[in-house]
């Protein structure tokens, strides 16, 4: 894990890091990766990839409407909101 990879990861996670943190995190992440890497020693030839840890399939619900939340109950929890919606800074792409 070099500084470049830490910076790319931080950018994807929208986290700002200072130079000192970058060094420390590169080191931390490298040790985590090494630890998990031990799994690669196991021979998995012929083992089907796990798609889910619980052995369930087709957990489906019928297409029947149920009550939604009143917007007064959740809008005030946002940092900024009007009576009708969440107010966010203008997005320009």
């Amino acid at each position: 894990m070099d500084i470049k990879e830490v910076e790319a990861t931080a950018r994807l996670a929208k986290i700002e890091l200072n130079e000192k943190d970058k060094e420390r995190i590169a080191d931390d992440l490298q040790r985590m990766i090494d630890y998990v890497k031990q799994l690669q020693q196991i021979d998995t030839d012929g083992v089907e990839p796990t798609s889910h840890v619980v052995a369930l399939q087709n957990v489906l619900r019928e297409d029947v409407p149920a009550e939604s939340l009143p917007r007064e109950s959740f809008l005030p929890q946002a940092p900024d909101a009007s009576d009708e919606g969440f107010v966010i800074p203008s997005v320009i792409e």
Partner: peptide
């Protein structure tokens, strides 16, 4: 189970799942 409907007053077809509240769990629509 919120309504899938075009139009409607803003934010009136919302619940913990579609608002992305922590801990809410999705269940697939058949």
């Amino acid at each position: 189970s919120c309504l899938n409907e075009f139009g409607g007053e803003p934010n009136t077809h919302c619940c913990p799942v579609c608002l992305g509240m922590p801990g809410a769990l999705p269940v697939m629509n058949r």
